[in-house]
Design a binder for these strands. Structure first.
Lengths: 218, 218
DNA sequence: CGGAAAATTATTCAATTGTATAACTACTGG
DNA sequence: CCAGTAGTTATACAATTGAATAATTTTCCG
């Protein structure tokens, strides 16, 4: 009887592989069902490796959470940055990216909720969350401010922050429900609902975000 | 050495006591840390009782989830119903009740998120969620419609539903973040942000919900 | 009051968990 | 091509888990 054949991976690759396997297992089976053995199987390695790359199972899970948070904001942020054009278009694209694939995935929403549930009572999760939230809010403020300026709306720092908070709430709420209630209403409506609602929250003229004046050539 | 003295409770009381202990444990330690023994200790009984009142630990947890969902909508709904007056006031009160105590409790948000994380991959949780969501949406639609009528805004069934979805997203999002980021901005702002944002979402004149014309006598 | 039914406790058990350790094997540099 | 090292597997173990069963106590009705 021979041992399992295996391949050596670089430290970064193996860690990422383990974190992604962790996310898959947490999504499918919850934090309580994501056992070291199951995660190892998902990553196609044996359980011992976990302790070799992470201090403990909990340490690996925390790293996976931070990995997920970073992925979510990066995806939306990149989508906005890739969009050339005026402020309206960039904000619009950022909003839409948050409620369309790949960010609007049921797995990601499940994961996010599962981890959020631990934030209150686990200081280490709280720290990861706080950092991610702050980063997301800053991104949002930076996108909102030029839009307000362009439309000659009040745009003090305090106002921008307040708008960012409300928008963030709206995004998270719709994002979650969009994937939770996939069957109840079409997911195609979500970006429109979000963009239209955002216009109103910011006090912009109807259509300024939803039907941008500059036609996009490609 | 004598046995622990105990008291016999009615079926309803004991079940509720166990469900509440379950919620406390799930909030504090997550689904993975909410063991039968810990829950039993929290309820001040021994572990065996769980199987006597519920088919299994999982069955008890599902019942506790349904119990929580019912509690949340009931609290907000009752608060609105208790408010006498026109449609504006009732909607306003319903909105505010969702982002103030006792609904805005960090424990409840933690619990809600934890359970939501299981909805996607556990059909039984999905069923509980679906029912609760539908009920909440119906409540919201019923509150929104007369407000739209009073302000002579479009109020077809489809429009009401769309508004209810957006409002629900906004509520959930702000509700969550309000308790997650308690330190970052004052929770006292939340009801105002929500009411003001809702006005805009519904296309109501500014202040129609936030500064209702009819002064409340008491 | 007394005794039967039901609620609750106490104990036990097999299975699973996270982790520690030892054995092995793939890769790298000379 | 060959050894050393570190990545990886395999095995072992104590602790904890959910559940099942037996023993005991409370309560209530006649």
């Amino acid at each position: 009887m021979s041992r399992k054949a295996f391949q050596r991976l670089s430290l970064d690759d193996r860690r990422r592989s383990l974190m992604e396997a962790t996310l898959v297992c947490v999504a499918q089976h919850g934090l309580h069902g994501a056992t070291v053995r199951r995660i190892a199987e998902e990553a196609d390695v044996t359980a011992g490796l976990v302790r070799h790359y992470f201090g403990s199972k909990d340490d690996m899970i925390r790293n996976a959470y931070a990995y997920l948070v970073g992925q979510l904001t990066t995806l939306a942020s990149d989508s906005a940055r890739r969009t050339e054009g005026e402020a309206d278009l960039q904000l619009r694209q950022f909003l839409r990216a948050n409620v369309t694939m790949p960010n609007l995935s049921e797995q990601k929403v499940s994961l996010w909720a599962t981890f959020i549930g631990r934030v209150r009572y686990d200081p280490q999760f709280a720290e990861i969350h706080r950092e991610g939230y702050r980063e997301f809010l800053n991104l949002l403020e930076a996108l909102v401010e030029p839009v307000l300026v362009a439309h000659k709306r009040p745009h003090s720092a305090a106002i921008c922050k307040r708008h960012a908070i409300a928008l963030n709430g709206l995004i998270d709420g719709l994002w979650m429900e969009g994937s939770l209630n996939a069957g109840l209403y079409s997911q195609a409506l979500l970006p429109d609902i979000l963009v239209e609602a955002s216009e109103r929250l910011l006090g912009l003229p109807p259509g300024s975000l939803s039907k941008p004046q500059t036609t996009q050539e490609h």
